[in-house]
Simulated assay, not measured.
Amino acid sequence: MGKRKLCLGLLIGTIAGGILSLLDRDARNYAKSKMTDVKSGSSYYMKRPSEAVKGAKDAFDRFNTTFTKGADNAINALEQVEGTLEQFTNKSDGEELNNNL
């Protein structure tokens, strides 16, 4: 129940804020130009749905490639840290053995 009230309050606040911001002439003109851009873009893709699908596929492929490169870099960094820690641990173990002798 609390989650529902919170979401409803956020929605009402967002709508009220948007309406109040439209009292400013510059904000209205900006909103109007953006809505015109959205309208022209959506009508373009409504007439050419195959381009929309191709664009979405290309964007997903770019995201997938970037994510994979980032994951590979993170794994490489972790392996380097692991190797450094092993060298440090082995060096410390060798010094302890020399001190005990």
Rank of each mutant, 00 (worst) to 15 (best):
G2W: 07
R48V: 04
Y45W: 04
K54N: 08
I15N: 05
R48Q: 02
G41Y: 09
D72H: 01
G13C: 05
A16V: 03
A27P: 09
L101I: 10
G83R: 06
A74T: 02
L22V: 12
S50N: 11
K47F: 06
N29E: 11
N64V: 06
A56P: 00
I12T: 07
S50D: 08
G41P: 01
L101V: 08
D93C: 13
A31Y: 02
N98I: 11
T84V: 02
F63P: 03
K54G: 02
D93S: 10
S43A: 03
S43E: 10
D72F: 03
K34R: 10
G18K: 03
T14G: 12
D24M: 06
R25C: 11
L101T: 04
S42F: 15
Y45I: 00
A27V: 09
K54V: 05
D37V: 11
M1K: 02
D61V: 02
D61E: 01
A16Q: 08
G9I: 06
T89H: 15
A74K: 01
T36K: 13
E86Y: 14
N73A: 14
L10V: 12
M1N: 13
P49L: 07
D93T: 01
K69R: 07
T66L: 14
K34C: 13
Y44K: 11
K34H: 12
R28T: 13
G94R: 14
K91L: 04
R28N: 04
N98L: 15
S40M: 05
K91N: 15
R28W: 07
A77G: 12
Y30N: 06
A77T: 05
N29G: 03
A52C: 06
S33Y: 09
A52E: 00
Y44S: 10
Y45E: 01
G94K: 15
I75F: 01
G17Y: 00
A56Y: 03
I15F: 07
L23S: 08
T36D: 15
K69M: 05
F63T: 03
A27F: 03
E96A: 14
D26S: 11
G70W: 06
E86I: 11
I12Y: 00
K39G: 00
Q80T: 01
A27M: 08
L8N: 12
E95H: 04
V38F: 11
S21E: 04
D58G: 00
D61Y: 09
I75D: 12
E95P: 00
E95K: 14
G70F: 08
C7T: 14
